[in-house]
Design a protein around this nucleic acid. Sequence first.
DNA 1: TATGAATGAGCCTTCATTCAT
DNA 2: CATGAATGAAGGCTCATTCAT
Lengths: 218, 218, 218, 218
Amino acid sequence: MSAVPKTSEPLRQRRKQARPSELSAAALELFVEKGFAATRLDEIAARAGVSKGTLYLYFDSKEALFTAVIRDGILPLIESAEAQLSGMLDDPEGMLRAILFAWWDNVGATPLGGIPKLMIAEAMNFPDVARFYHQNVIERGRRMVEAAITRGIERGLFRPVNLEQTVSLFFVPAMHIAVWRHSLAFCEACQQDPREFLENFLQIFLRGLRATEKGTPE
Amino acid sequence: MSAVPKTSEPLRQRRKQARPSELSAAALELFVEKGFAATRLDEIAARAGVSKGTLYLYFDSKEALFTAVIRDGILPLIESAEAQLSGMLDDPEGMLRAILFAWWDNVGATPLGGIPKLMIAEAMNFPDVARFYHQNVIERGRRMVEAAITRGIERGLFRPVNLEQTVSLFFVPAMHIAVWRHSLAFCEACQQDPREFLENFLQIFLRGLRATEKGTPE
Amino acid sequence: MSAVPKTSEPLRQRRKQARPSELSAAALELFVEKGFAATRLDEIAARAGVSKGTLYLYFDSKEALFTAVIRDGILPLIESAEAQLSGMLDDPEGMLRAILFAWWDNVGATPLGGIPKLMIAEAMNFPDVARFYHQNVIERGRRMVEAAITRGIERGLFRPVNLEQTVSLFFVPAMHIAVWRHSLAFCEACQQDPREFLENFLQIFLRGLRATEKGTPE
Amino acid sequence: MSAVPKTSEPLRQRRKQARPSELSAAALELFVEKGFAATRLDEIAARAGVSKGTLYLYFDSKEALFTAVIRDGILPLIESAEAQLSGMLDDPEGMLRAILFAWWDNVGATPLGGIPKLMIAEAMNFPDVARFYHQNVIERGRRMVEAAITRGIERGLFRPVNLEQTVSLFFVPAMHIAVWRHSLAFCEACQQDPREFLENFLQIFLRGLRATEKGTPE
DNA sequence: TATGAATGAGCCTTCATTCAT
DNA sequence: CATGAATGAAGGCTCATTCAT
């Protein structure tokens, strides 16, 4: 509020452009921390440095703000991830590793990493948002992993496994870290380095997935 | 209204004894479904078939009801599980399998299976309850698995792995099923048979865990 | 609150029965005085001697309270008026006079006399209520007057006039008094005795209505 | 946006002069339709085709706008009416008829015809405005009618009647039409031609007023 | 002069909690 | 023990008003 750079662009204009994402960023933090119902609009406004009424210049209601937080928060990321990772199908194991750590760097380690917790908590209260999230985030993420595993099986690198369940297993530890970071964060078991945890998981996962004929020297 | 005959009423007596758990059962369902803040005491009372005021005869406040739901719901189960499973240390793989499916039968498949979702959603709003849950449920559960894996490593059945992380990995898929059952339940990927999913996980998990020198005859 | 007679009937019970009409009576006064939008529920509750929340035990919303004020306030009166006055058709002039003064005594001079002002002010904001009022109050009132004038014409007592317009003319001065009582009440011209005003109107009205052949000696 | 050429702009000049009355015209329509409290400044600005802030360039507050709507709307008309009709005292009946239809043409049939409804609705919320309206509009209008009736009585054309009340009766049907046009407008009884209604009223009114000795040739 | 983004006081409504019955 | 009418604090939302541009 005091450290605004005085460029030639009028301040008002720049704030106007930035406001919606400033507001939804503040909202995301609080929704993740306390849940939708327990978050007061006062708090969101205060954290964004605006007054309560300003929220209504950009969002029709608390619920609309919630929807926007989910929609606008995660969709761009999925799209860029698809663009970046689709070319790695030649190396299934490498692609799986890349998906996992790209997710961690761009989502899990950022405030967006709270969204899985938020969706878990609010899915039954906002079925429409949950359905959107499922179709546009979960399903698209699963498809990427599915493609990698399928290719690995085709090439004889992986055992023929139940695809659906194996894809689920692949995501589950990453989700686990993201969720616990924003809930039972004090738990020491979660204080471990997330990348190390994911690496450890990948080893067990891939080892369990690989075709057995070829030994995998540790 | 004033002339209620005061005979010996076994039914009423039984109800009186059972009331608290009837109330907390109703509360659990609703807390899991909608979250703590979004659940009204009216609804809980209605679902338990009592009036709103009656809740205050057994619980001091909404928050006390929440605490009771967690405390009284899960603790007895952990204790009986410890008693039943502690004798299986001779067969680490069998013990891991037994833990997983005992948990599913006694917790995951029952209304108590909603507690993980509830704790995830409310941990940051109720740090005391979260700490209680962590110490008395999570840690005790982890210790059982830790014992089995440690014994497996000692006997050369399992590779020497990072214990903490591996224990986490062991629990994560089970938690995942329980959580998603009560949030994104409509997701088809979650409609799969939970036991089958756990079985599939166990295969990959154990295969990834086993010492490599010995082939793993399916 | 302190002068409640201590009869055998429990206080709570009696209040429960009386509350809705106590509340709508308070609401009527304030809606008439300030209009719907300018009336705060705080005021209504305060005037009725209850807290704000109590209003919602009996009415779903401010708007529902408005509807109830109109519906429950005026309908019973119309019905009793129809019952009492329908037998006077033998004496058209007497019936018209009776209608006018019965209306004054039972509506105009009571708090219900504010309803015409209220309906005028809010009809366009609440078209459904306006339509209800029109069909169930205005039209039924008009039919009674219409019957009297028609009979008078049939018997040669009245000139053959435009019925619709004459019925309107009959009601207009009464409405005028009622409306001004609750709006420009300070106007001296309105300080006149209402009964005298109505009597004076009746004379001019009937004199203008009567068949001319028979002189009407003053 | 910054390079607006400062040429001589007759259109803009004209707009600048006309703005206040354009604004109060828009305000009048909405105040009449929805009442003062239920009308938002946003709507008024939108209907006048300006932004919300512009209203504050011409009026200090919403209430000042209300006052201006009444003051500036009706006063010029009364003054021109007085000038035009004061010369008709030689023909009392003609003057009464002229007053009635001049009022209809210049007020009742125009947007100003909504003012009586507005004053009825808001008189108790704005006693100062109501007093102004009473003194400068109502009283001056009454005086014109009073003069005509007095002259008619002096000349033996009219019966000696209660002046105050008869003047009220004279205005009441006209007010009634104006008010209902802006409130219960859907009512079929009000769909009648207003001039015809006023004509019918005049016949009954004058017939009831005339001295009885002289027959009244239609 | 005109704009419209921003404000914040105020209102309707909800709901945990109390208490007379 | 049980009820449910009553309470009042608090939250979502609106809108008259201000002011930087």
